[in-house]
Lab assay of single mutants.
Amino acid sequence: TTYKLILNGKTLKGETTTEAVDAETAERVFKEYAKKNGVDGEWTYDDATKTFTSTE
């Protein structure tokens, strides 16, 4: 399943996707990605669109 991440950081904005077996796995991948890029925001998830959003 393809999951999408929308980053709305103070210094980094953008989108990326990952293939994962479930939302929990995708969330771990995306949170590590955000951390590596210095984004520490509030997380939301929309199951209908398989989209995570992190907003600082």
Rank of each mutant, 00 (worst) to 15 (best):
D47N: 09
A48Q: 11
R28A: 13
Y3N: 03
T49W: 03
D47L: 07
K4G: 03
G41C: 05
V21S: 11
D46K: 02
Y3L: 02
I6Y: 06
L12A: 10
K50N: 07
Y33S: 01
E24R: 11
L5T: 01
D47V: 10
D22P: 00
I6N: 04
N37M: 15
K50Q: 09
K13T: 12
V21W: 13
T16C: 15
L7N: 01
T55A: 06
T17C: 13
V21P: 15
T16F: 15
E32I: 08
E56T: 07
T1F: 13
A20V: 04
F52V: 00
A26C: 00
L12N: 08
G41Q: 04
D40F: 14
E56K: 05
L7V: 08
V39N: 04
A48L: 11
T25F: 06
F30P: 00
K50T: 03
E42C: 12
G14L: 15
T18D: 02
N8R: 11
W43P: 00
Y3M: 02
K36P: 01
V29D: 04
K35D: 06
A26T: 00
G41N: 03
E15G: 07
K4N: 06
T25N: 07
D40L: 12
N37S: 10
K4Q: 05
S54W: 15
T17D: 04
V39M: 09
D46P: 00
E32C: 08
K10W: 11
T18R: 04
R28K: 12
E15C: 15
D47Y: 08
E27Y: 15
T51V: 06
A23C: 14
T49I: 06
G14T: 15
G41F: 07
F30Y: 01
D22T: 06
G14H: 14
R28V: 08
W43T: 01
T53I: 09
L7F: 12
T55Y: 08
K10S: 10
K36Y: 10
G38R: 06
S54E: 04
N8L: 13
E42Q: 12
T2G: 03
E32G: 04
A48G: 09
T55E: 07
A34P: 00
T18V: 15
G38Y: 04
E15T: 14
D40M: 12
E56W: 07
K10R: 13
A26Q: 00
T49Q: 06
G38L: 05
T1N: 12
K35N: 08
A26E: 00
N8F: 11
E19T: 14
E15W: 14
N37P: 01
T51D: 01
A34H: 01
K31A: 05
A20T: 05
D46M: 03
A23T: 09
T53N: 05
K10A: 11
G38C: 07
E42Y: 13
D40C: 13
Y45N: 00
F52Q: 01
E27S: 09
G9L: 07
S54V: 15
R28G: 06
T11Y: 14
L7G: 01
K35G: 06
G14D: 12
F52L: 00
T1E: 12
A34F: 02
I6G: 01
N37F: 15
K36E: 12
E32W: 06
V29Q: 08
E42W: 11
N37D: 02
T18F: 14
R28Q: 11
A26V: 01
L7Y: 12
K50G: 04
G38E: 05
T18K: 03
L7S: 02
I6P: 00
Y3F: 11
T25W: 08
K50C: 05
T53A: 05
K4M: 07
E27V: 05
T2C: 14
K36V: 12
T51W: 01
K36L: 13
E24C: 13
T11W: 14
N8I: 14
N8E: 09
A20S: 06
D22F: 03
L12G: 08
L12F: 15
T55L: 06
E19M: 14
G14P: 05
L5G: 02
V39T: 04
K50W: 04
T17K: 07
K4L: 08
E42P: 05
A26F: 01
G41I: 06
K35H: 11
E27L: 15
W43G: 00
T16Y: 15
N8Y: 12
A20N: 02
T18Y: 14
Y45L: 01
E24W: 09
G9R: 03
G9C: 08
D46R: 02
A26I: 01
A48T: 12
K36I: 13
G9E: 03
K50M: 07
T16N: 05
D46V: 04
T16P: 02
D40A: 11
E42H: 12
K35P: 01
R28S: 08
K36A: 14
K50P: 01
T2M: 13
T16M: 15
T11V: 11
D46N: 10
W43A: 01
A34L: 10
K13D: 05
I6E: 04
L7A: 02
N8P: 02
D22S: 08
E27K: 10
F30S: 01
V21G: 10
K35V: 10
T17I: 08
A20H: 02
T55K: 06
T18W: 10
T11M: 12
E42D: 12
G38K: 06
D46E: 06
E24V: 11
G41E: 04
T2A: 06
V29I: 14
R28M: 10
T16K: 09
V39W: 14
T25H: 13
K35L: 13
Y3T: 03
T2D: 05
L5F: 09
L7P: 00
L12R: 09
Y45M: 01
G9D: 03
T16I: 15
E19H: 13
T55D: 08
N37R: 13
E27F: 15
K10L: 14
E42F: 13
K4E: 03
T55M: 08
E56D: 08
A34Q: 02
D47K: 10
W43C: 02
D47A: 14
E56M: 07
V21M: 12
E56I: 07
T44A: 09
G14N: 11
A34K: 01
N37G: 05
G38F: 06
A20F: 06
K4S: 05
T17Y: 14
D47M: 08
S54C: 15
W43R: 00
A26S: 01
T49L: 07
E24M: 11
T49P: 00
T1S: 10
S54H: 07
E32L: 08
G38D: 06
E19L: 14
N8C: 14
T16R: 10
E27M: 14
A23F: 15
T16E: 05
F30Q: 00
T1Q: 12
E56P: 06
E15M: 14
E27W: 15
D22W: 02
T25I: 07
K31I: 08
E19P: 04
G9S: 09
I6Q: 04
G9W: 14
T2R: 12
K4T: 14
V29R: 10
E24T: 10
R28F: 08
K36M: 13
A23I: 11
E15H: 10
T49C: 04
A48V: 11
T1Y: 13
A34G: 02
K31R: 14
E56H: 06
D46Q: 04
T51Y: 01
L5N: 02
L5W: 05
K50I: 01
K36H: 09
G9N: 05
D46F: 03
N37V: 15
G9Q: 04
K35C: 10
R28H: 08
E32K: 06
D22E: 03
I6R: 05
E56G: 05
N8G: 04
K31E: 03
K50V: 02
T53L: 06
E27R: 09
T51G: 01
E42I: 14
S54G: 05
I6K: 05
V21E: 12
T11G: 09
K10H: 13
A20P: 01
T11F: 14
V29N: 06
G9H: 14
V39C: 07
Y33P: 00
D40G: 08
F52D: 00
E32A: 12
